[in-house]
């Protein structure tokens, strides 16, 4: 069921002309903490067309089901509601996992996390993404949860999004009006909200051919099973000397309504020696992007401080990885 699917067809997704619908709405704290799930119907789409058709017919009462580790909890706790749940795991394009060192990675939106770290080539090529995949929930969550789902859930604290942004990933979206591509950095619009228009859904993520080194680091009070208090993803490319940074991208989680790019922090590193001093300066630059809130996962000032600490640390790891590849 879950075997690898050939990717060919999903590089091109046929255009569809369907009425748009809202896919997600903002999550708010709910007092409903039910034991059982609310009533809905289930449909398993086997093609992108069928999914678009089902989602369109379902209107804003239809929800996409990939790994289910967010949506099932939200339906149970009344944070979201649905009349129709559309399982997209039987659509080959959504389960595609294809890596080509020259071309990059095509990651179907419903591919569960464990398949990323179980694939040594992918783990070596995109370590930041695999850092994320290993810590989204426990192992049992990773058996179901997908990177695409983590992105579509659009939590400000999502562990995969800073990595995707740092790695320069692009979303491939299907919808009634056809297929379009959006950089991951522009996908999320607010907590629990994203740019998916009515009738659209995420088909796959496209990562460019691997270069340099990358890493993701989050801070949590325990050592596992927590939501990030702060998360930082980084990608760096070294110059031919291996001593200076040629290019860098840094993205942050849990310090703003959406995961954010720390553009200045990345820029500040270009041409700089790959040293603790440079990393620290980048950390200070990254802190300027942070606009955290105080909530049950941490106070705002602490989060801002952590951005500096984690940026510095994650850069050291990313550089180390970049060097080891040379």
């Amino acid at each position: 069921m879950r075997g690898t699917t050939k990717y060919g067809s999903c590089w091109k997704v046929a255009a569809q002309n369907r009425p748009p619908r809202s896919f997600y709405y903002s999550l708010s704290a709910s007092t409903r903490k039910a034991t059982a799930l609310q009533d809905f119907s289930y449909a398993a789409a086997t093609t992108i067309d069928e999914a678009v058709s089902l989602l369109s017919a379902g209107g804003d009462r239809a929800r996409v089901l990939a790994g289910g580790t967010d949506i099932i909890v939200q339906l149970r706790e009344g944070l979201r509601s649905a009349d129709l749940v559309v399982d997209v795991k039987k659509i080959p394009e959504l389960m595609a996992l294809d890596f080509d060192p020259a071309r990059g990675l095509l990651l179907g939106a419903a591919v569960p996390c464990y398949r990323l770290y179980d694939d040594e080539r992918i783990a070596a090529a995109y370590p930041a993404l695999v850092d994320s995949a290993r810590i989204i929930g426990g192992w049992q969550i990773q058996g179901r949860a997908s990177i695409g789902g983590n992105l579509c859930n659009s939590s400000p604290a999502a562990d995969s999004i800073p990595s995707l942004i740092a790695l320069g990933a692009t979303c491939r979206i299907a919808g009634p009006a056809g297929t379009r591509e959006v950089p991951v950095a522009e996908f999320c619009t607010a907590p629990g909200r994203n740019c998916l228009a009515r009738g659209e859904f995420l088909v796959s993520l496209v990562l460019p051919a691997p270069r340099g080194g990358s890493a993701y680091l989050r801070f949590i009070p325990r050592n596992e099973m927590d939501i990030a208090v702060v998360g930082v993803g980084a990608w760096v490319e070294l110059d031919p000397s291996g001593q200076k940074i040629a290019d860098a991208r840094i993205a942050l989680a849990a310090v703003a309504p959406t995961p954010v790019v720390a553009a200045e922090a990345g820029k500040s590193l270009v041409g700089q020696p790959a040293s603790e001093a440079s990393f620290k300066a980048a950390g200070e630059a990254a802190k300027k992007v942070a606009r955290p809130i105080t909530d049950r996962r941490g106070p705002a000032d602490y989060r801002t401080h952590l951005v500096g600490v984690l940026t510095q640390r994650v850069l050291a790891t990313a550089v180390e990885r970049a060097k080891s590849k040379k």
């Binding site: 704290a29 007092t31 903490k33 009070p221 325990r222 050592n223 596992e224 099973m225 927590d226 939501i227 909530d295 049950r296 996962r297």
Partner: peptide, 24 residues
């Protein structure tokens, strides 16, 4: 137990109550 400004518990789940795991 964490409370909001209306004295309602905000972390009534294992996720945010944070009991030790094997890795801690």
């Amino acid at each position: 137990y964490l409370y909001d400004d209306k004295s309602r518990m905000t972390n009534a789940s294992y996720l945010d109550y944070r009991m030790p795991t094997a890795l801690d």
